[in-house]
């Protein structure tokens, strides 16, 4: 009961942070670590966080799209991994279906919020700005409710049920899940690729791949090379532009 309440509380705070402060606390890597801290098993928390972060790497809310709720998926999965003692593999099976289920609830919540914008219109017309601010905070209530509604029952009622289920899973399937933890990051990376899909720049992907595979470069090393290449590339782009007016704009922006 206390576990369920604590986890739900953390989930609500992180859910608000994920949409608003956006300092990265609601990302799987950190969220799982925080759950690990709260439940007294940081090592498992971080390990689950790493696995889930890799899978959800490319999934961010772009524009109006509602992504699978990686936060709720992470929180429930990490809690189960720690409480059941089954380790990080089990987190993987849970995180994705939970994230997809929570996504549906998110869409519902964002529909309910439409009510507040209409109320705010009315408040503005009346010149009642306190009320307008209150309307904005109506969204906070919706966010907390929808997070609590999923997380609390899942943790409170779910652990026994989930433990029973886990006992029924054959060893080979568990091995398969472990393997999929290594393969699934490809989905995030593939998705990022479609986002960065500028045809004449795609070779840079292979340069990065080759540097790591054959040159043993780390991420930081490649980032340095990449920034240098980007600056050189931009220099030549600028040179080939005849538009003198815009010539120094990027430099001006960079130095600001």
């Amino acid at each position: 009961m206390i576990t369920a309440l604590l986890v739900s509380l953390v989930a609500c705070v992180l859910a608000v942070e994920g949409m608003n402060g956006q300092f990265g606390f609601s990302r799987p890597l950190i969220a799982a670590t925080i759950i690990g801290l709260v439940l007294g098993d940081v090592t498992t928390g971080v390990t689950v966080g790493v696995t889930l972060q890799l899978i959800f790497m490319g999934i961010s809310g772009v524009g109006a799209a509602v992504p699978p709720n990686q936060l709720i998926g992470t929180i429930i999965a990490t809690t189960f991994a720690i409480v059941s003692g089954e380790g990080p593999e089990i987190a993987l099976t849970l995180a994705i279906p939970v994230a997809v289920a929570a996504q549906a609830v998110d869409i519902f919540g964002r529909t309910i919020n439409t009510f507040f914008i209409h109320a705010a219109d009315k408040a503005a017309a009346e010149g009642n700005y306190k009320k307008l601010e209150l309307c904005h905070f109506g969204g906070l209530l919706v966010m907390i409710c929808k997070t609590f509604i999923i997380v609390f029952p899942a943790v409170y009622f779910g652990i026994d049920a989930v433990q029973g289920l886990i006992a029924m899973i054959p060893a080979q399937v568990l091995r398969g899940l472990e393997v999929s933890g290594g393969i699934l990051p490809a989905v995030g990376f593939g998705m990022l690729l479609t986002m960065l899909d500028i045809k004449h720049l795609i070779p840079f992907f292979f340069i990065g791949f080759a540097l790591a595979t054959f040159g043993g470069f780390s991420i930081v090393g490649v980032t340095m090379v990449a920034v240098s290449i980007a600056l050189i590339y931009d220099h030549f782009q600028k040179k080939s532009e005849n538009d003198t007016e815009s010539k120094d704009d990027l430099d001006a922006l960079m130095s600001e």
């Binding site: 690729l193 960065l196 990065g208």
Partner: peptide, 13 residues
């Protein structure tokens, strides 16, 4: 995009 793509190459590897 250049930076993003190169880092993505490393991460895939």
């Amino acid at each position: 995009t250049i930076i993003g793509l190169m880092v993505l190459g490393v991460m895939s590897a």
